[in-house]
Design a protein around this nucleic acid. Sequence first.
DNA 1: GCCGTTTTCGGCCCGACTGTTTTCAGTCG
Length: 572
Amino acid sequence: MPVHNADIAAAFRRLADLLEIEGENPFRVRAYRNAAATVGGLPRDAAGMIADGADLSELPGIGDDLAAKIAEMVEKGSLHLLEEIETRVPPGLSDMARVPGLGPKRVKAIHDALGIDTLEALERAARKGRLRTLSGFGAKTEKNILDQLARFEGVEKRLRLIDAEHIAEPLVAYIRGIDGVKQAVVAGSYRRQKETVGDLDILVTAKDGAAVIARFVAYDEVGDIVSKGTTRSTVMLKSRFQVDLRVVPEVSYGAALFYFTGSKAHNIELRKRAIRRGWKLNEYGLFEGDDRIAGKTEEEIYEKLALPFIVPQLRENRGEIEAAEKGALPDLVSLQDIRGDLHCHTTASDGKYSIREMAEAAKERGYAYLGITDHSKSQTVAGGMSEDELAAQIDEIDALNEELDGIRVLKSCEVDILSDGKLDFSDKLLSRLDYTVCSIHGAFNLSREKQTERVLRAMDNPHFTILGHSTGRLINQRPPYDIDLEAVMDAARERGCYLELNAQPSRLDIDDIHCKMARDLGLKVPISTDAHSTDGLEMMRFGIAQAGRGWLEAKDVLNTLPLEKLLKAFGR
DNA sequence: GCCGTTTTCGGCCCGACTGTTTTCAGTCG
């Protein structure tokens, strides 16, 4: 069974958990966690890199030992050290360590004293009041553990960025209305525009932190107050979504914004950079001894550290600091660069509006073109068109283009890729289109080899242009199907095809890491909304956010091209 | 386990809050 980066990262994370419970050197533990992040964020499968003779020890945080362990995983599909530790440390302990409030030390103490190694046994012991007999544990800790166990299931899910916005916007508006609040902004993964957000980190500047926090915890939606100090507070909303608030003085705004935006890995790199210069960087500023030499803005912190400003989307320690040093940071694509949308639906299949209405909405957004991509005949549940209906739609679009001014409607179709790799319409009909978006809507469970083969075969069809939502994942609902996107991208480049970045907040497919892979391969990425209504065109901004996280510049995005060049790129 | 502008050993990011202590350990972000 081929081993993928996610498997290697999971093994390293598990190893780190178990080593930590064993009381191993915390820096060794951190090395495994860092390595998990590095491998998980690689634009290519480590297996392929090794096959190509790459030296993985050149990767940041990967030395000879970890490179050898990655090779071992790739070769054998398992890790000897992990198996060995699992014979000493019961696997249930790593589950216990995931209970909020329980860390490696407490888990070890509970296991050593009471022999507990499952969540069930932990709950029984807490109910019987056995935990409080341990030194360092009291009645309150025991109750907290019980409370956490009660809500343990179903809590872990991260919210889609769009859902987080719906919580954050009214909350920030409320905080801005509190007396004495100067600035209030959401930092964290929300500001980095990650596809999902685990909690909200809100930064406030004000003189009297305690007063602000008193009002914050009184917000209507607050369920439980987890902690409440004079500078920070954590609450759990009634929706079980966590919000952290931090109050700092205005002079520290930039430093705090930097600190709470993260990512943690990016922050640590910059702190080390400060240390090398004999300084200290924390959420209050950049300090030389007791003197604050920067901190009011993020820009001055980067400047002092001899770096150009790095936008939040790039702050993942995935090469952005090295790029900044070399003056090679990407100038990220923005909404203003987009000239049109290449994937949307109308009443001809499962959309809500006519072609004309969609085209007018696109024109209002300042677009020069809009591709109409209704479903093909196999998509019966989504009102897929018959051959005759698509033929009629082609004529309708030709006539409409005669009438419309300032926007060109492109003739296309979201054509099903059948399970054998054939396309769902005849070549003769497809040849009348400006381009196609070809998508998988069924047979998700094929093996990686078969699924990849299926798409490559479809791509052999000369009328194949864009692969729609390339992995089929639905965030928090459905995992991606197993497919070798690297092979697909290579094939797409050879054949003049493209992989879509679907901007739907539940899809964002391809993801940031694969966007970067496409960029590295020189493969332009179309960013499309898959809109089923005029409002749906608005989702473009989520695609732009994901593209930025994948380092895409305007030149890397297909639909920044003006109409003539776009048609040329389609071979028309 | 990694790494080098104090470079092959001896460091490794930094601070707030809670609960248990009575000066601090554990956890979290």
